[in-house]
């Protein structure tokens, strides 16, 4: 039961953070970050399983592997940006958090450029010149 482990870890970390926060808010922040990372790392194996399933499906559907790679990169960017934004927001820097999210969105759009280019090329090719 992974979920019990995760919840137990989160509860323990929360208590410890509550204890430290009185004395040292910086340590509390680092502890929160550390706990979040540990929880995510414990879950990343499961996400890899799901992604393996997606890759198999995509190979079955004969989707261009570049597309799947792009989509997976977009998910990765979303995860990292989300992580960073939440950590900074926990630290009380809401503006930096929103900038990180903005960067994530922009990078996702950049990642989507090849697909959009291919779409436009397809449409142009289909249309009689």
């Amino acid at each position: 039961m992974e979920i019990i482990q995760v919840v137990g870890l989160g509860l323990v970390a929360t208590f410890l953070i509550l204890v430290i926060k009185e004395q040292k808010p910086v340590f509390a922040f680092l502890l929160a970050t550390f706990t979040g990372v540990v929880i995510f790392l414990s879950l990343v194996g499961k996400i890899a399983d799901v992604i393996g399933l997606l890759t198999k499906l995509a190979q079955e559907a004969r989707v261009n592997s570049t597309f799947l790679e792009t989509v997976l990169k977009i998910i990765g960017i979303a995860y990292i940006a989300e992580f960073g934004a939440q950590v900074t927001r926990d630290a009380g820097q809401g503006s930096i958090a929103s900038k990180i999210e903005l960067a994530g969105k922009v990078l996702i759009m950049v990642m989507a450029i090849p697909i959009i280019t291919m779409m436009i090329e397809t449409v142009v090719e289909i249309l009689p010149s």
């Binding site: 323990v12 204890v19 430290i20 509390a28």
Partner: peptide, 24 residues
């Protein structure tokens, strides 16, 4: 949990000890 969960307690302990030392 493949990762070192006790690192959390290490960090918490370091924080508490540092806070105590700081106070002392």
């Amino acid at each position: 949990m493949p990762y070192n969960v006790d690192a959390i307690f290490q960090i918490a302990g370091i924080g508490i000890i540092v806070a105590m030392m700081h106070t002392v």
